[in-house]
Design a protein around this nucleic acid. Structure first.
Lengths: 212, 212, 212, 212
DNA sequence: CATGAATGAGAATTCATTCAT
DNA sequence: TATGAATGAATTCTCATTCAT
């Protein structure tokens, strides 16, 4: 009853927090939001439903955190790609490919990001996340235009379209049954990347067939 | 024999059916699938919940009909545009512009097409709808490629990306409050269309009419 | 609007009344009470639901009438058998066989007579009907006892047991699928009759193997 | 680890499960299946409707369990009687008397065994239960016949008739208001048993103990 | 008289959230 | 802190009954 919080416990708590988020991510990637009830999450982490509420004030808060965390790490990776001193077209292609191939591995999860959640609170977070994704590409497009690599265009719209484009293209295979074959996935990723390159108007630069 | 259906009654019934679909559409466009409970729909049309079931065997059936009807009429319009004897690039731009400007008027509905509904039955219908949309653009892209207007590309992926692109771009403004200004909308539509034209690789051909 | 009731119309009305009861009987015999919704009955007779209420004040009343009518005619037949100047044992056997073979033709209907109806009002009627059935056999048993054909016994209990016995035995085949074969049915009827004969203690009289 | 299930809690849970079944039994015995809505059951045990679903996955499952449990314990008792090394006629009488006197205490429950439930799932269970009851008596009759105690007969039909006979006889008094008097009940039970004995043709053997 | 659209009171079931232990 | 039983509001769907035409 009179516990002192030892570092070990702190860690365990943090662990639980992450494990909860992880379990939620797993469940969503398996069966969408529908499958991620608090009971299911609790069962997955091996805690009680009540315990979940020790770490998150509500289901919505849990979802928001999951969303935010996923997007945070994703954006980190994307920025790592788009900040390098390379032609914008190359960076664009690589960013898209990078995002797409990761997304293909946890299909329903990527799905859930565009999907209408049950809760207005989560909805707000979702929109924010999309904005942040868009921002990465918007920056990139703006750079490309400034440098004359891409033609003049509404960078914000282009960015939104890019995000939408690859999400749609990625979501499609989810509906289709049959486990994704490796080569098919790679083909898809490449096609999406090429689409995006053309879409920003980076016509000439886009052709390096066999990039490492 | 005497009290059979008068034309007036027929009309009222048909009216109700349409009013139910209309109310559902309205509710979805306001708050997504979540807000379109049977009770809410019934209240919106001024009927009892039971009455809804005189017109639709289930909530899922209502949603499916709504989705299908919307896509049916949309596709009719799109085909009307894409079947004309014009350059593929032109038809693409016009198709996208046409779709986009209509979608901007019923924002959340377009939204619903990407959304994960609670009901598997509706989910199936939604996927079908997206496929049908994709098919229109896939045909168009294939034609353009065949005629040498567009470069070689994975037409199915391109089509999916196009659908995703403009949906995403259209959905974005929904989150932003403030009623859409006419000119802003027009600008957005144009930007999306240009994005799509570039995306299929129709670079040179894309500058007709009164381009900025 | 100013109709005079012609004899023809009277007849038509009476017709409808009977057709409604008939349709209800049909539906119940097909699928039990569950299948006999007012809507189903109306559809079966080719009337509107509202019209049913012109002939019966409620669903319960309709069911009660159906029950009563069925039992009325059944009892008439039974009395025709049990009132003849024959040994009680013979009359018993013939009464049971007569009832049983008719019941086997409309299985679910016989079923419904013992079955718990949804409505207390119908329930009351059902109990009354069973009493009336019982009374027929009670009389018969009492006679047999008085004449020394049967041993002394609680005639009311015996009668109830007889009714229960053959109902149970008749209901059993309903559950089992497969359409009833003629010979199997005949065998069943005979076995039930013999059971009842033995049950009243009419041991010696009961053995005329091949009766017409 | 600290707050695991204490024996007390275990007991309370088990209690609840049983209390739910008990409440359901009570409600059914009062007013039949009709009165045993989940809401009524919940109210009776002093729980919320939702809580019921912690113990039973569905209303049908609850009913099935109730039915099965009742029949299980009943059959155990019956087998205990019919397996003893006594003349079949004696065992029959005692089995019937045993069953009947218990049934008279929970009248409507016996009732429920013949009743048509609303739910197909429960219906299936009910039929199974009747079969199992029948089997007990069928065995007994077969034995009696084999040993020459009873005349040749269709043992399955006899068994069904016996089950039906005493159910009907037991159900009858339910309708009649007025609490059952002890002596009246005893008389009824005896009469039913005698009926069954005669019915199997055990005429001579049936007069042991303290017969009137 | 007939029609059948509409009513509206339930019924079963789900699940995020709370709280006594 | 952890537990998980309990809550209770919300949701979909059914159907006997009514009533304007």
């Amino acid at each position: 009853m009179a516990y002192k919080r030892t570092p070990l416990m702190q860690e365990r708590l943090a662990d639980n927090r992450e494990r909860i988020v992880g379990a939620t991510r797993l469940l969503i990637s398996r069966g969408g939001f529908r499958e991620a009830s608090i009971a299911a999450v609790a069962h997955e982490v091996g805690l009680s439903t009540g315990a979940i509420y020790r770490y998150f004030p509500s289901k919505a808060a849990l979802f928001v955190e999951l969303l935010t965390a996923a997007v945070d790490s994703e954006i980190l990776v994307l920025r790592g790609i788009t900040d390098r001193p390379l032609p914008a077209a190359v960076r664009l292609r690589e960013a898209v490919e990078s995002f797409a191939s990761r997304a293909l591995k946890g299909p329903h999860l990527a799905y859930a990001f565009i999907v209408e959640p049950t809760d207005p609170e989560v909805e707000a977070a979702r929109i924010l996340c999309r904005r942040r994704f868009g921002a990465v590409f918007e920056d990139l497009v703006r750079q490309g235009v400034r440098r004359g690599e891409f033609p003049a265009q509404a960078a914000d719209v282009t960015a939104a379209c890019i995000v939408g484009a690859f999400t749609e293209a990625l979501v499609r295979p989810i509906a289709t049954e049959g486990p994704s074959s490796q080569p098919a996935d790679r083909k898809l990723v490449r096609a999406i990347a090429e689409f995006c390159q053309r879409a920003v108007g980076a016509a000439a630069t886009a052709a390096p067939r066999r990039r490492a």
